[in-house]
Design a protein around this nucleic acid. Structure first.
Lengths: 239, 239
DNA sequence: ATATTAGTTTGATATATATCAAAATCCGTG
DNA sequence: CACGGATTTTGATATATATCAAACTAATAT
């Protein structure tokens, strides 16, 4: 669980990336923070559609999203693709690649984005010296496993509109954790991408949006969403 | 990828649990193996339906399955449950709990089983001293993330019979990795549990089994399965 | 500004899977 | 070994979502 951080505070706290506040907010001393900063470096200039890495690429580093957002997707031989997540500022991607030393999914920018590259061998070495960093790295990996469990629950046992409600509530909560409005935000992904993530066709996603709007739960105009009745949207999931 | 191990070899290599061969087969010296053995201890006597841990339990340890098998499941408020995995000998469970220090799913024995308890604080301490153990722990966690991606792909973009075929092929491959027959095995879980895992109703699972049998792909009698045409079953997935 | 393209919404229909129901089979227990 | 409860199979039908299609809207380039 990440605590709310105002954008200005974030800027102050972060020398070249947002690691401190959002990704690694555990009890590291200033000196330890410094060491972490030294092994990481910022990579700029990713535009919508650009790949941060591709499935099969050799694993070198984890990435902390510094600005913008990404999607991750796995591809099946026959061309089918499954979006496995949407990542926003402060989240870490690339954990899948530790297993085989090669990435097992693609990471694609959803908008203009920047990332902080964290060479994994250096991160491992540092975490041997810093138990709090070690523990934090473990928690990040575990959190990803818990997140995946939640998606399995969603895909395996919820109906279409429940899935969309759960998706919107998840976005809402993550925006709130970043000091942004939990009820009014822009979607950075297409209906097709949402559908892929939720195991639905894009038309079904569009209809569910329309239905929520008719019910007065949300107001939606293409990519901009306003949640009008957060409690009722909550009640919708798991009912 | 675990290499095949004959049951007898396993027994010899393992003082009180199977950590050495199946879970932690990386370049640890005899001395290092010894240290690992010292922090772990065997827990016996789990019968079908017994809980290894429950959602909400305080996190203490990871568990390596020594004999038997387990399922993990997450529960929704409204009582719906989703099976998130079936674990067999040599696999590690409990990784979800590192994140919050509390378990986020239940682990339930599918048959008479034994586990090796690995207190996590000791494992972390040891892995600070042993880079190869550290790396291996990271790989185990990452492998779980990759496995979860595969399930998302399955749940999000495969049809019922493809899901069952993928499930059977996964079991087959894991039995083979343990030196058991890849084509002839006993299912340890019910149709309902398979259905929950695959996002299907038990009747749909049963019908898919029957259909595969009619097609000559498998021979199935309740819990005992024989795969008759492994290549064609493979072709079935992703077609 | 206008044309072109990509993305979204909405409608009509098809289809895969769920639901409901009953019979058959398996398995543990007395 | 037989009983009773649980599990599995199979059938008939219902329903949620996919598919196909067209209109509409937004974004991008000329």
């Amino acid at each position: 669980m990440q605590r709310p951080v105002s954008p200005s505070r974030l800027k102050i706290a972060c020398s070249n990336c947002n690691l401190r506040e959002l990704c690694l907010p555990v009890g590291l001393s200033e000196d330890e923070m410094q060491l972490l900063d030294e092994i990481s470096h910022l990579k700029r200039g990713y535009a919508r559609g650009d790949y941060l890495y591709r499935s099969g690429d050799k694993f070198q580093a984890l990435y902390a999203i510094h600005s913008g957002s990404f999607k991750t997707q796995v591809l099946h031989e026959d061309g089918r693709e499954q979006v496995t997540g949407f990542q926003m500022v402060g989240e870490i991607i690339g954990l899948d690649a530790i297993s085989t030393e090669h990435h097992t999914c693609d990471a694609v920018a959803l908008e203009d984005s920047e990332v902080c590259e964290l060479p994994f061998d250096k991160l491992e070495a540092l975490s041997r010296e810093m138990p709090s960093l070690q523990r934090h790295l473990h928690k990040i990996m575990s959190r990803e496993i818990v997140r995946d469990q939640g998606i399995m629950l969603l895909l395996g046992s919820m109906r279409a509109e429940e899935r969309l409600a759960a998706f919107l509530l998840n976005l809402s909560q993550r925006f709130a954790a970043r000091g942004l409005s939990p009820t009014s935000f822009q979607l950075r992904m297409s209906r097709r991408e949402i559908g892929s993530y939720l195991g639905l066709k894009l038309e079904t996603v569009s209809r569910a949006f329309s239905h929520f709007q008719e019910d007065g739960l949300i107001s939606v105009k293409v990519r901009s969403v306003e949640i009008l009745d957060l409690p009722r949207l909550h009640g919708f999931v798991g009912k």
